[in-house]
């Protein structure tokens, strides 16, 4: 996706209309799957999954600035709720789409309520802990529900009777990108709402925010609940696409990848998240010829990116001003 240099800074008067870029991206996404083989459609599907996960973490990390390195836990809850309810009780995947989102959101509400007062890195380790607890619990197969290290098999396709059955790469591709598209529309309107402004205010200065009458605790929890809900929805689609879920898909490493998606793209920036997700999901594919050296390249590129674009590829700006917390030491 080309970076639109016209829309930033001094060249504002020359800028192309704002709707051009999203229209262009949408058009490319619509045409793309008809030009390539199933293999590349699947790659674009996983790009979509990472985009959705990136968007979900972006609410917590990007909008409110809360360090969450356990987001894979919420993703896992969504995927396992789908897997268990579908394989045991035959509840259709589409019905479980909101259910898994709600379950992950409820889980986030329960575990985050007591820890939401923690600051910065302390919150970070607690979220890591929550993510690890979820993963270990899934491995240990509580109440014979999660199938242990092997996970749950035989998850159905999303279907509405026999009318609509999503069972090909192409259909999954459109499903995930439709969900991503709807989420983006929702998130943009959130960004421009009272809630979005409150979130950004908390990120820039929590004390000033609470002094201005913003209920910091409520808005932080809201971010966690919404972020977890979206991750749960991603888990639902992922589970039905793979037809099986296992704990290793939800490791600490996945949480780190989501963290990188948000930071590589630019905190709080929706186009940035898409670029970050593209990097994370497409890079290992593009560099497949390097075989075992590709992750060496991957690590080095991450370092280089942070050297040359520390604010991310597409940092979010409001009125041409970049956010303070991205550029300065926000530790204390």
């Amino acid at each position: 996706m080309p970076v639109n240099t016209n829309s930033t800074g001094s060249a504002r008067t020359l800028s192309v209309p704002r709707w051009i870029m999203p229209m262009l991206a949408g058009a490319i996404l619509l045409i793309y799957p008809f030009l390539v083989s199933d293999y590349y459609i699947d790659i674009a599907f996983y790009f979509g999954i990472y985009a959705l996960l990136g968007l979900s973490l972006n609410i917590v990390l990007g909008e409110v600035g809360l360090f969450d390195l356990g987001h894979a836990g919420f993703y896992a809850i969504g995927a396992y709720v789908t897997a268990i309810l579908n394989t045991r009780y035959g509840i259709p995947i589409f019905v479980l789409l909101p259910v898994s989102g709600l379950a992950a959101a409820l889980f986030a509400y329960i575990v985050c309520s007591p820890i939401i007062h923690l600051k910065g890195d302390y919150l970070c380790i607690v979220t890591i802990g929550v993510g690890e607890i979820v993963r270990i619990a899934l491995i240990n197969n509580p109440f014979d529900l999660t199938g242990g290290p092997n996970g749950v098999f035989g998850i159905d396709f999303p279907r509405i009777g026999e009318l609509l059955v999503i069972d090909s790469s192409l259909e999954y591709y459109f499903l995930i990108w439709a969900v991503v598209g709807l989420s983006i529309i929702g998130l943009i309107s959130l960004q421009n709402s009272r809630i979005g402004r409150a979130w950004n205010c908390i990120r820039e200065d929590g004390i000033a925010a609470s002094a201005s009458g913003i209920d910091v605790r409520y808005y932080k929890l809201l971010a966690f609940v919404l972020g977890a809900g979206l991750a749960g929805i991603a888990g639902n689609i992922y589970a039905s696409k793979l037809m099986c879920v296992s704990p290793e898909s939800f490791s600490f490493w996945e949480s780190c990848l989501m963290f990188c998606i948000v930071l590589i793209g630019g905190m709080g920036s929706i186009p940035g998240v898409l670029i970050g997700a593209a990097f994370i999901s497409l890079f290992p594919e593009i560099f497949r010829p390097f075989a075992m050296y590709r992750m060496l390249v991957f690590g080095s590129v991450m370092i280089l990116m942070m050297m040359f674009r520390p604010g991310g590829f597409w940092p979010r700006k409001r009125g041409g001003v970049s956010y303070r917390s991205l550029m300065e030491d926000s530790g204390d």
Binding site: F259, L263, G299, M306, P310, L326
Partner: peptide, 28 residues
């Protein structure tokens, strides 16, 4: 060192990158 001036979060990503690099270097 090149990332310090940019703040804390870029440094975290850089550290993750260094970790991936080292881990895979050991594997190679």
């Amino acid at each position: 060192r090149p990332v310090y001036p940019a703040g804390r979060l870029p440094a975290v990503v850089s550290a993750l990158g260094a970790s991936i690099f080292l881990q895979n270097a050991i594997m190679v």
